[in-house]
Amino acid sequence: MDLSIVVPMFNEEASLPLLHAAIVEAVAPLGVAYEILFVDDGSTDGTFGAACSLAATDTHLRVVRLRRNVGQTPAMAAGIDHALGKTIVTLDADLQNDPADIPRLLDVLEEGNDMVCGWRERRKDPFFSRRLPSIVANRLIAAVTGVPIRDNGCTLKAFRADLMRSVPLYSEMHRFLPAMAMPEGARIAQIPVRHHPRRFGRSKYGIERMFKVLFDLLTIRAAVSASRPFSRFAKAATAAALPGLLSLGWGFRVAASLPGASVLVPFACASLFFSLSFFLLVCGALCELIHSKHAGRVPAVAGSGAVPPAQARPGVAL
């Protein structure tokens, strides 16, 4: 199997036949062995039935039904785990992505990339509720992770299957797929893709996810983009020690300028900050311990030949 098209879906009964037809129309002329994987994420409408009746007419189509609604990222993980293809393309079921872009993604992937991310050119979404938060989030993600992805929210991506097996996909982390794949030594390209307004159903996102993105970013920063988490914690510990030193200096100044004055508050502040600094150092050591196990695993990308060894993540010897 060369190609797997993975489509997570939740309550998308109306768009299924069109989606399926569009995917077949885009992929069949490529002349590769392909499969289409519909992942029904515990839909409560007729999505599963509609998908099954499509599967009865198309041998390329497989339907994976999840027992309950788990959200987009785990549903995507389910699809990727069950995909047989060497290359995987993911896209949204809501027809806002255009399957006609798939051949272009695959072409760019062929040029020696491990992952090709689409970015939605001329997005057809409301500006203030959808596009503005998205722009802010993308800038923020790019700044924090150092991986300049224009549009992390775009599901339309193509990547090599073995790359994704080394990247953890859980909770809502699909938004950070490129950032998580980068330390694995992946080469990432981006191309503009078409974007259509919603035709059926309604959007399943809200603006409140911005808040979650902030904490997710912190996680990504600590867990992923740091090759050694200890250095991050050590920086934080240094940052906590600075106000401690200032408090200490302030205490000595008070003691020197006003003999007999109480210096309890400055010195107590100093010791609090120093204790925080020490605590963060200990946390860093703990993280290093946890992380070393993770890093000891052989990165999946290293042996594939597509990536020069210098770019692959070295195994950490301890």
Binding site: L61, V63, L66, A78, Y170
Partner: peptide, 13 residues
């Protein structure tokens, strides 16, 4: 990578 967050009910096709 070792945690599966989903449970597959059935696979068709």
């Amino acid at each position: 990578r070792d945690i599966k967050e989903y449970a597959v009910e059935e696979i068709v096709g």
